[in-house]
Computed example of a mutant assay.
Amino acid sequence: MSRIVNVALGQLGPVQRSDTRERVVARLCEMMREAHALGAHLIVYPELALTTFFPRWYLEDEAEIDSFFEREMPNAATQPLFELSRQLGVGFYLGYAELAEEGGTRVRYNSSILVDRGGRIVGKYRKVHLPGHAEHEPWRRFQHLEKRYFTPGQRFGVTQAFGGTIGMAICNDRRWAETYRVMALQGAEMVLIGYNTPVHNAPAPQHDDLSLFHNQLSLQAGAYQNGCWVAGVAKGGLEEGVDSIGGSLLVAPSGEVVTRCLSKDDEVAIARCDLDFCAVYKRSTFNFDLHRRPEAYGLIVARKGETLAADGTPWRD
């Protein structure tokens, strides 16, 4: 018997700095209702969905920075989304800025959660590949200060949910082959990815006209080479004067795009995903146990002084 998950892409249009959490959550709820009417079991929302993309500004006031972060989830502002999830039986992926307490120290993460059809949090992920820079660079039209505001996450994991094995990633993670491979080695059948991607790439403006192409290329390659479904969902449009791509889409294990959003506004698109279809690739072309040769790969130098084992995990002597 096939394992079917009807997945909705819950693309957001711009979220301005003046927009309250409550206003954004109301938009998310409206999209969840639309997704439910279309038969969705799961709706995927973007990265940092609850606020404007604040890393575009250089901020020094700690209280001002903290105002963009969530100290708990759910909280008063997001509770209606969880209640609606329980009421409708629609799960969701949600990206947000997380302020955590670890050993008495405050730590900021770019995070996402996976919520099941009963409104329960069943998985959390913290963004590993932080792009951008850490200090103010006045030559840019706008900043991209993720390295200033966030601590990198430590691992890619998977969650048993929606009848299968689900992985999560965020934005820049989608560009790195190891993101998908490490989760695929844990059996991932579907990877959910929210993103905020500006059209303009300040360090490499020659990439601007390729933004949508590179987005789709990354998602299709990750899906095909790992035999899994991949849902990539944007927050797009003109937000605080910065134009961001939309291009939300859902890719099958074959690498084929099965549905996409057509605008840069709030939009819902849905597709029927058969998790058993992953086996067509995981048991043939990309049968890792049969065809991979990790003994031939050796150690991969990840950064100066660090190494990864052949399966992408941190090397341990």
Results as ranks from 00 to 15, higher is better:
L81S: 02
G89D: 05
T179P: 00
Q225Y: 15
R283G: 04
G10H: 02
E267S: 03
L130D: 01
A234W: 01
F53A: 07
H136C: 13
A77D: 11
N196Q: 09
L59G: 07
Y195M: 06
P314Q: 08
A271M: 07
V5L: 12
G236E: 01
A279T: 06
S244V: 06
H214M: 09
L114I: 07
T151D: 09
L88I: 07
A279K: 14
A202W: 10
G305W: 06
L88W: 04
K264V: 13
L308R: 11
R33Q: 12
A63K: 15
L212F: 02
E239T: 07
V257W: 06
E137H: 15
Q143E: 15
R117V: 10
M32R: 01
E306Y: 08
R140T: 06
G241H: 08
M1G: 13
F92N: 00
E30V: 06
E62I: 14
S284F: 14
K235R: 15
N226K: 09
G123C: 12
H129M: 14
Y224E: 11
T285M: 08
R140M: 13
F288Y: 11
G227V: 05
V158S: 02
P205L: 13
L99C: 12
Q216C: 04
L238A: 10
H200V: 09
E70S: 14
G89V: 03
G153W: 02
A77L: 10
E83A: 11
G298A: 10
V15S: 04
L48D: 08
P46I: 00
A188V: 07
T307C: 12
L28W: 03
E306D: 10
T20C: 10
P14I: 07
A188I: 08
P294Q: 08
F142A: 05
V15A: 08
R71K: 11
H214K: 12
D276R: 14
C261T: 13
